[in-house]
């Protein structure tokens, strides 16, 4: 393990849906950040990113996001990645239901 390498996860947008997805350790793409593979080695992280980038028919814009490892799973370090996880802060993942009676 590199001495000063902050843990990373691989994240991207889904080509068809557009939504935020994360790479799991079983090579599947998942919606839930808690299921993302935590990469603690820089070389591993680069390899996993290459793996993601080799799937242009599935994902767009793959990159490594810094995380803090907690008991609840990886927590994004940057607020941008936090927003990507939670969705817009003004509507909590808005659904049609919320607007039915407005």
């Amino acid at each position: 393990m590199s001495a000063h390498f902050a843990p990373r996860i691989v994240t991207a947008n889904h080509l068809l849906q557009g939504g935020v997805i994360y790479l799991a350790d079983n090579d599947m793409w998942v919606d839930d950040i808690r299921e993302a593979e935590i990469l603690t080695d820089e070389a591993d992280a680069q390899l996993r990113l290459l793996f993601a980038e080799q799937q242009p028919d599935t994902v767009v814009g793959a990159y490594l996001a810094k995380v803090t490892v907690t008991e609840h799973g990886p927590e994004p370090q940057h607020f941008r990645d936090q927003l990507r996880r939670t969705g817009p802060s003004h509507y909590a993942h808005p659904s049609d239901k919320r607007f039915e009676n407005v």
Partner: peptide, 16 residues
């Protein structure tokens, strides 16, 4: 990408 942008389609933070 240039083709979708010509038709107003972006890829943003959470979605297209």
């Amino acid at each position: 990408k240039p083709l979708r942008l010509m038709n107003g389609l972006y890829l943003q933070l959470h979605a297209y």
